[in-house]
Amino acid sequence: MKSVGGGPGIELLLLLAAALCFCFVAARRVSAPLTFEPVAREADVLRVVTWNLGTGVDAGTQGLRREDMKRVVAVLMALEPDLVFLQELSSKGQLDRLRERLGPDWQASMSDSGHGRPMAVLACGGSLSELPTPEFIRAHAVEYRGSAGELITCVVVHADAFSAQARNQTLGELSSYLDSRVVGGRTLIAGDMNLDLSIDQRGDLFSDDEYLDLETYNYFARGRMDVGLGAGSTAKPDRRLDYIFIGAGEFDVLMAGPWLGQRAAEMDHHPLVADLRATGTE
């Protein structure tokens, strides 16, 4: 049967419409995940780093190795941070050596080894004083008083890697602990929370715990701001496990994300870095 006229014109119009739509889509800027690149900063900008220094499964999951110390020191010196939250150190002696290499301006406070490998908060300038943290929480809290007198409650946390329920307990109890502390100043919570979520993307097949971890994340994020949201993955192969949370409205986030290409070969986490300015200080 012979085709009747009019059809080719409509087809052409439809193809043209399709081309226009696809051109519009292509013209829109594709936003890549945010990553951190260290740049000079103003004096009132606080640079914060969290880094899990342990090795990955391929290297037998151990704390910071002696041969990686030099690399860690070089990265921290390049970043020139004000506050550093470290997880998976090997020992107290190792932290002391790290602090000595960083220089005399550095203060450090370390958790006891009751919760697996030690974690620590380091500060360049200012002072640190340890806060009592309940035994059952896998976290270490300190009070940081900066050189300008500002007061920040800092908590380094390392949640369980294998149990979503344990992560829920750790972060839930940490949240309650922080809420119960009636003190002035601001709050920074950072560390390897082991929450592997796909918040606004399709599901990840890596972990079966995802929907359970969502409960924990959403509970913990209430009244706080997830500084690294929208930044890429912080641990290999493609997982966002490290977080920096601030009290809502306490800081402006100038830049945040993992600084890629800095981890030593056997380490499985990138340093997560954020430049923050305390609100009302500009």
Binding site: L12, L14, L15, A18, L20, C21, F24, V25
Partner: peptide
């Protein structure tokens, strides 16, 4: 929306 309309127009053509 434009992406979906683009696919739709292509399929219909």
């Amino acid at each position: 929306g434009a992406r979906l309309l683009g696919f739709s127009c292509l399929f219909l053509a």
